[in-house]
Nucleic acid binder design. Structure first.
Lengths: 239, 239
DNA sequence: ACTCTTTATAGTCGTGAAGACTATTAGTCG
DNA sequence: CGACTAATAGTCTTCACGACTATAAAGAGT
């Protein structure tokens, strides 16, 4: 891009789309809004909106996240740019380039519902499709990304409340990956990774009534996992 | 994003920026163009340009890649979306949202120089800064991403010609990571990963005259490395 | 021709991480 | 009080990997 001829380019509308994921009742859920107008009227879609003139995409995404979830403080929530979707025909009305984000919530509040969205609610990830526009693909990309990031980052704690048990942390991995993990081994691995979690002294919580109370942990200072926590059975043992 | 009020959004210019990386003489190089106009006249910048009305960002990026490198066939080259940069003030003239891509080239052709760029050339990665606009940050992000992807993907072969020796493949890792790897161990690890590389039967190449000729390999069918090839000395052995 | 250097390739050894599994502890529920 | 449940502790075996040594195949120098 050298000289800027003001007639050398077409102006595009720039939006953000949010794949807001959470764990509810042991299942992965995604925050969706019901579309009121055509196209895709009545269809569920990822929340999002236009980037305002003086906003970066990140700022717009966090603003939309606050509006759609109704949470007063979204500053601590994990929000990360996923990818930009720019197919010329992804919106039948006009040329829209959308910067997609993934957001991870620990405890799911009932969605605000307000804003300009006709209706907002959590839907189980498996029952979300078909979504409007190219949102099926965006949602799939978000799931892939989060699943991969669980392997080599401390992202899993973003799904958990400030204080959590190792069982809850394990549930994050098992739910997102769709696999079962061995509990003692998971525990050994997590505790052996410096900075992943740190114990809350003297605290314990009953996970739901039955069983031995679990010790509580907080997210540690580390951001990356070295070595990573690899998901099992990807290529299996050959032969 | 519900209804589209045509006055509800500001039109943005959408561009692509390319971080084109290659290995020259054992050092990481990046393709840069010299800016002709203000702002940042005379400063080096990442190649890029406007997304055309009927293009996706990916299409625009591949078109720019062909223009800037002068290569006739860029269809086989590794090109991947990096991230979108949307700070309102990243271009002093107007509101420009840029979708950045990383591209990896095996053998560096002398850059075309033509196109609308004043001048295009390969610069060693370490001597590239300071670049125009926010391109220092984009370049750093590209380097980070490529370095991370070497760990868990077969990306390294994108830096190599169609047939390469394991020594050349190891040079990719060593150059991008800036570390030295043990040759026998690297060899064992690569060959033990199914689908990473496959031998070219009966072929051998002298790496540069001296020494035993090395066997040639081709890129395999795998795309991800399981388990990953972790870079050493990140957190060291504690205690 | 012989040796030295260089690079590729083969193999060895010890440590440690991780999967599979068993045992114990500390709670609730009937 | 026992049955049940979930957390936590510990064992054993396998295997990946870092460190290291040895051998093979080429060119360069004398």
């Amino acid at each position: 891009m050298q000289g800027y001829d003001k007639y050398a380019f077409e102006p595009f509308a720039v939006t953000v789309d949010l794949a807001v994921l959470t764990l509810r009742a042991g299942a992965l859920h995604v925050l969706l809004v019901e579309r009121g107008q055509e196209p895709f009227a009545g269809r569920w879609a990822l929340p999002g909106g236009f980037v305002l003139p003086r906003e970066s995409a990140e700022t717009a995404a966090r603003r939309e996240l606050a509006e759609e979830t109704g949470l007063s403080d979204v500053s601590g929530l994990h929000l990360e740019q996923l990818r930009t979707y720019s197919d010329p025909d992804r919106d039948p009305r006009m040329r829209v380039v959308s910067v997609a984000f993934t957001a991870l919530l620990p405890d799911p509040p009932e969605p605000h519902g307000g804003g300009d969205a006709a209706q907002a609610r959590w839907l189980p990830y498996d029952q979300a499709r078909p979504l409007a526009f190219d949102h099926d693909g965006i949602l799939a990309d978000a799931h892939d990304r989060v699943g991969a990031q669980l392997e080599y980052s401390c992202l899993a704690t973003a799904f958990c409340p400030p204080e959590f048990t190792l069982g809850e942390l394990q549930n994050v991995y098992e739910t997102v990956w769709g696999v079962e993990l061995d509990r003692p081994n998971f525990r050994r691995k997590v505790l052996a990774t410096p900075g992943f979690v740190e114990p809350v002294p003297g605290a314990a919580r009953l996970t739901g009534g039955r069983g031995k109370p679990a010790a509580l942990y907080r997210a540690g200072t580390a951001t990356t996992l070295h070595p990573p926590l690899l998901r099992p059975s990807r290529e299996g043992r050959p032969a």
